[in-house]
Write a protein that binds this DNA or RNA. Structure first.
Lengths: 358, 358
DNA sequence: CTGAAAGCGCTAACAG
DNA sequence: CTGTTAGCGCTTTCAG
C-alpha cells in the first residue's frame, strides 16, 4: 500500500482538511495534532479522556478530530498499550436461540466496562473450536468466555498459556480450567425425571439431538436415566435427529415414537423447540396433552408462552449466565489479583400443564 | 433465583512452561526464533507461509512454535502490515432469526478467504449503529457489511472516509453508499398484497412491529398499502407491538384485531413468528384457516414447516444475501480495483395454504 | 533461501 | 497541564 508522508508546514494550521493528503491513507493522530496545533500526546489524552487537559485545548482537539472525521487506530493503540478491550465469546451456534440470549446478558454487563464482546461460532465442532480460539487469542483479548467444559488438549493448553481470565459457561459438571458459570445439566435431567415420575408417569421416552458435540444434552439424558433407574424404571424408547427445522423434526420424531410405543405416557425432549413440534403434532392428531401424554422440554424459551399448552421445561438461566460470566471478566480485568470463581446457577423447573409440582 | 458462589480453593494452577521466561508475558516471535535458532524474519515467513523457506528450517520453526505454544500477535502483525483480515458485520439484532442465517451465509463464503467476520449489534438504534460502526472502523477492517440503507449522517461520513468496501444488505429501496445486496421490501409488500387480492380477499389487516428503526418492515407495509389502494382497497385495521415473545404477541394482536373486526378475512403479519402465533390462536379458537381468514407472514422461516397449516410467506433470501455480500468484500479485497456492485435478489412468494397462485 | 534495519500509529513513562 | 522519548511485536524492504 502506497503511503504519502505529509511534511508538516509549521505555518498554517487550518481546521479544514489540508489539501494534499492522500485520500487513500487513513487519518492519524498526527493529522489531528497538526490540524489542532496540539501535540500528539495531548490529542491522544483528549481522545481517551485520560489525564487532565485544559478545557480549551480539549475543545480544539475535539473539533479538529470531528471535522477531519478521525477514527482512532486501535491496532496501534493496542500494541502500544499492551491491552485490548476485547472479550472473546466462543459458542457452538447462533441459531440455537439460547446463545443469543447469553450474548444479551454479556453485552448488557460489558456495555459499561469499556470491554467489547467478539463472537466466534464453533458449530459444535471441537476442531473448529480450537481454530476459533486460536484466532481469538491472536488478538490478545482481555478475556475469553467459552461454552462448555470439554475442549481439545491444544485448546486447553492455549487457554492456560494465554494469561487472561477464562470463563467456561453453561455447564459445571466437570473441572473448570479457571472460572465457570452454569448449571448442572446432569442434575437438571435428574430433577426433571424425578418430577415426571412423581407425577405418576411411567412409560417415558427421550427425543433429542444427534450432535456428538452437545455434551450438555447428553448430560441431561444421563441424569434422567440415572433418576429413572433409581425409581426402577427405564427409558421406553429414544429418538435422535440432526439438522432441519426443529419444529418439524419434533413432529416427526414424536410420530415415530408414538407409532412404535402406543402406550408411552411421557415425552422428554432435549430442547423446547422440538418439544413444541411434538406438542403441535399431538394437538393435530388429537392426542390429549397432558391427558394421554405429558411433555417436557428444556431451556424455558419465551416461545413457549405462545403455545396452546405449556410444556414442562427448565430455565437454563441463559441471560444470567451471560451476565455473571461478563462480570467475572470485567472484575478480573479491573483487579487482576482476583482469583478464579465458579458460580453454580440453579434452574427452576417450570411444570407447565403436564407436571404436578410436589 | 438463589445463587451460590463457590470460591475455588485451588488458586495454584501449575503450568509447565520453559524456565526463565516471565510467565505473565506472552510469547513472541523472538522466543520462537531463539528456540529454533532461526531469525525472526524467517520464523515469520514460515508462520505465514510466505516466501520460500527450506523444508528443514521450516520444520524446526514449526516444531519450536508448537512446543512453546506460540500464538502470533495479530495486533502487531496488523500494525506492521497495514492490513487486518477482519470484516465488520453490523446487524440490528441476533434474536431475529433472520440475521443468524445471514451470518451463516457470510461465514460460509469468508471461510476460504482468510477473512473473518466480526459481529456488531445495534438493536435497531441509529445512535447505537453509529457507535458500533466507530468501534469497528477503529480496528481497520478490510470491509463492512451493514444492514439497511438508512444511517445517520456521521455514520455515512465514517463509511465514506474509511476507504474500504462497504456492502449494505437486506434492502435495495434507496441509494446505496457503495455496494448493496438485498431485496426490494416495498415491492415485496406490493407483491404479497396483489396475491392476496387476487385470491379474493378484501378485508385485510396488518399486524407488525412497533420498532421505529425497522425500515424494511415499514417499506413492506407501504408497498402493501400502495397495492391495495390501486385495487381500490384500504387496510381494514392495523396493530403494532414491541418486545415480548413474538409467538404470544401474535396471538394477542390477532385476538385484538379479530375482536374489533369480526369480518376481517386476511391477516398480514410483518414477520413469520407473529404470524405463527396468529395461526395458533386461530386454531385454538376454532377459526378456520384459510376458510375464515387467510394468513401471511414474511421471511420464509424454516420454522413454518412445522406448523399445522402453512402461512403464505416470502423468502427474504437471507443466506444468499450473506453469501453475495461476503463475495463482494472478498472480491474487492483480492482485487482493489473492482468497483461497487448492487445486487438485487428476488424473493419467491410461498403461497402456503392461504394464497391461490395465479 | 536468509537476515538486518526501519518503521506501522499509538501510548507509557517521564520530564517540565 | 503539556510535551518528549522510547518502544509495543510484527512485517516490509532491501541486501546478501
Amino acid at each position: 500500500m502506497a503511503l504519502t508522508v505529509l511534511k508538516s508546514s509549521r505555518g498554517d494550521r487550518t481546521v479544514t482538511k489540508p489539501p494534499g493528503i492522500d485520500p487513500k491513507r487513513t487519518l492519524t493522530l498526527r493529522d489531528v495534532s497538526e490540524a489542532s496545533g496540539v501535540s500528539e500526546m495531548t490529542v491522544s489524552r483528549v481522545l481517551r479522556n485520560r489525564g487532565d487537559v485544559s478545557p480549551s485545548t480539549r475543545e480544539r482537539v475535539l473539533e479538529a478530530a470531528r471535522v477531519l472525521g478521525y477514527v482512532p487506530n486501535k491496532i496501534a493503540g493496542g500494541l502500544a498499550s499492551q491491552r485490548v478491550n476485547l472479550v472473546g465469546v466462543i459458542i457452538p451456534s447462533l441459531s440455537n436461540m439460547v446463545f443469543p440470549e447469553v450474548m444479551t446478558g454479556i453485552s448488557e454487563v460489558l456495555e459499561n466496562t469499556g470491554l467489547q464482546p467478539v463472537v466466534g461460532v464453533t458449530n459444535y465442532s471441537p476442531e473448529r473450536e480450537e481454530t476459533v480460539l486460536y484466532e481469538m487469542l491472536s488478538w490478545r483479548p482481555s478475556g475469553i468466555i467459552i461454552a462448555g467444559l470439554e475442549h481439545t488438549q491444544p485448546a486447553r493448553a492455549m487457554m492456560a498459556q494465554a494469561g487472561i481470565p477464562i470463563v467456561e459457561i453453561m455447564d459445571i459438571d466437570g473441572q473448570p480450567m479457571d472460572s465457570a458459570v452454569g448449571i448442572s445439566h446432569y442434575r437438571a435431567g435428574r430433577q426433571m425425571a424425578e418430577a415426571i415420575v412423581a407425577s405418576g408417569y411411567r412409560k417415558i421416552a427421550f427425543l433429542g439431538t444427534q450432535m456428538a458435540g452437545d455434551f450438555r444434552a447428553r448430560k441431561r439424558l444421563q441424569g434422567m436415566e440415572e433418576a429413572l433407574r433409581r425409581a426402577g424404571l427405564d427409558l421406553v424408547d429414544r429418538e435422535f435427529y440432526s439438522g432441519g427445522s426443529a419444529l418439524l423434526k419434533g413432529r416427526e420424531m414424536t410420530a415415530a415414537i408414538l407409532a412404535r410405543n402406543p402406550d408411552v405416557d411421557f415425552l422428554y425432549y432435549s430442547n423446547d423447540m422440538i418439544g413444541a413440534g411434538g406438542l403441535l403434532y399431538c394437538r393435530d392428531t388429537g392426542i390429549d396433552v397432558p391427558g394421554k401424554v405429558g411433555l417436557a422440554g428444556f431451556n424455558g424459551l419465551e416461545l413457549l408462552d405462545g403455545l396452546p399448552v405449556r410444556l414442562a421445561t427448565m430455565d437454563a438461566c441463559r441471560m444470567e449466565v451471560g451476565r455473571r460470566a461478563a462480570q467475572i471478566i470485567a472484575g478480573r480485568n479491573a483487579s487482576p489479583d482476583l482469583g478464579p470463581e465458579v458460580v453454580e446457577l440453579f434452574p427452576t423447573l417450570q411444570p407447565g400443564d403436564t407436571i404436578r409440582q410436589r
